[in-house]
Design a protein around this nucleic acid. Structure first.
Length: 339
DNA sequence: GCACAGGTGTTCTTACAAGA
DNA sequence: TCTTGTAAGAACACCTGTGC
């Protein structure tokens, strides 16, 4: 086993092999790789020919010893949320423009797994970590951020000192949803949230509840929050129960399209007319909400802008910026048939 | 046998000297 | 002045020697 490992190391093509094949020094190869000043076209051609011939790839581990690996970890809560795809795609594209590669880890909505993933990213000497909607506490993130640059999306912690946050203004977005319902003539507006008992105060759902309460208070209306079971559990029965409530509201703001899309589907399947019997507003403006047969009015938190801004913020951290930044991106409501 | 310190190997980068 | 090479250095894992 040990011999195999040694052979694997020796079989690897190194910068020395390239230098020997091209008939130049190791330093010359290093300069070509880094596109450094002072390299003639002839030398560059020689080196590039040998790199291609030997199929050489620089060792990330060895580069890490000198400083950067040019890799960034992206840690996501899960992959079933279609909204996240837009964030990841834009972040990945922005990082690629700066020659950084991104590797994705899935936290599966549990703090220990998220912590383990972050530690692996640190151990693999990644240059930074982009975390989307973590369950892990801000205190723990502060600790990790002393070891590696961290930017967090969908995590409201405006007082964090060692890491940056980039968020949609979730509180404002929820207020906009209430205002959109009011403009459509609804006054009996409830919110469908979920059980926040074991959730940290930094999660987006908490901000969205505050925004809903702000909107209802400003309109002089009574707020009413109904709760589904925890995210990750089967909530179909709870949605069905909501639809047959005797005092079912005329309009409902749902904390996320993750629940709003199943709700609109269940409502129609049970014979309810949307929006005539029940108006529904979601949050995220996920691709599913935009499908004409779904036609869900939803708060758009601009996934592409979130991903792009977060990636740029992380690159700034990697470049040595030390003061924390906490950025909010303006949401807007995308009106469709469900209201 | 264990802990500790120092040495060695690995891969790449960088400062600076030398040659055309 | 531009191009290239040498030597030193960085940072880690692993190895070896020494003393208790």
């Amino acid at each position: 086993m040990k011999n195999q490992a040694i052979n694997a190391t020796r079989d690897r093509i190194t910068i020395r092999d390239v230098a020997q094949d091209a008939g130049v020094s190791v330093a010359a190869v290093s300069k070509v790789l880094r596109n450094a000043y002072g390299v003639s076209d002839i030398l560059r051609t020689k080196v590039e020919t040998s790199i291609e011939k030997l199929n050489y790839r620089p060792s990330v581990a060895a580069r890490a010893m000198r400083g950067r690996t040019q890799t960034v970890g992206i840690l996501v809560i899960e992959l079933s949320n279609p909204f996240l795809a837009g964030v990841i795609e834009e972040a990945n594209g922005t990082l690629a423009e700066s020659s950084f590669k991104s590797l994705i880890g899935i936290g599966r909505s549990t703090s220990p797994i998220e912590a383990s993933m972050i530690e692996s990213m640190i151990d693999n000497r990644m240059d930074g970590v982009l975390i989307i909607a973590p369950r892990i506490s801000g205190k723990v993130l502060e600790r990790y951020a002393r070891q590696i640059p961290i930017v967090v999306i969908a995590h409201h912690e405006p007082h964090a000192q060692t890491y940056d946050t980039v968020n949609s203004d979730d509180r404002r977005g929820a207020t906009l949803a209430v205002e959109a319902a009011l403009r459509s003539g609804y006054t009996d507006i409830a919110m469908l949230g979920y059980d926040l008992a074991d959730s940290p105060p930094t999660i987006v759902a908490v901000q969205r509840e505050k925004g809903y309460l702000d909107g209802m208070k400003a309109a002089g209306l009574e707020a009413r929050i109904l709760r589904l079971p925890l995210v990750g559990t089967d909530r179909r029965a709870a949605i069905d129960d909501f639809l047959v409530l005797k005092d079912r509201p005329r309009a409902v703001f749902v904390w996320s399209d993750l629940d709003a899309v199943p709700l609109i589907n269940a409502a129609r399947m049970s014979g309810l007319r949307v929006p005539e019997d029940l108006a529904i507003i979601g949050y995220d403006n996920s691709p599913m909400a935009a499908i004409p047969l779904v036609g869900l009015t939803s708060v758009d938190q601009n996934a592409a802008e979130l991903g792009r801004t977060a990636a740029k913020t992380l690159l700034g951290r990697i470049d040595g910026r030390e003061e924390a930044r906490h950025l909010l991106i303006d949401p807007h409501v995308e009106i469709r048939g469900s209201t």
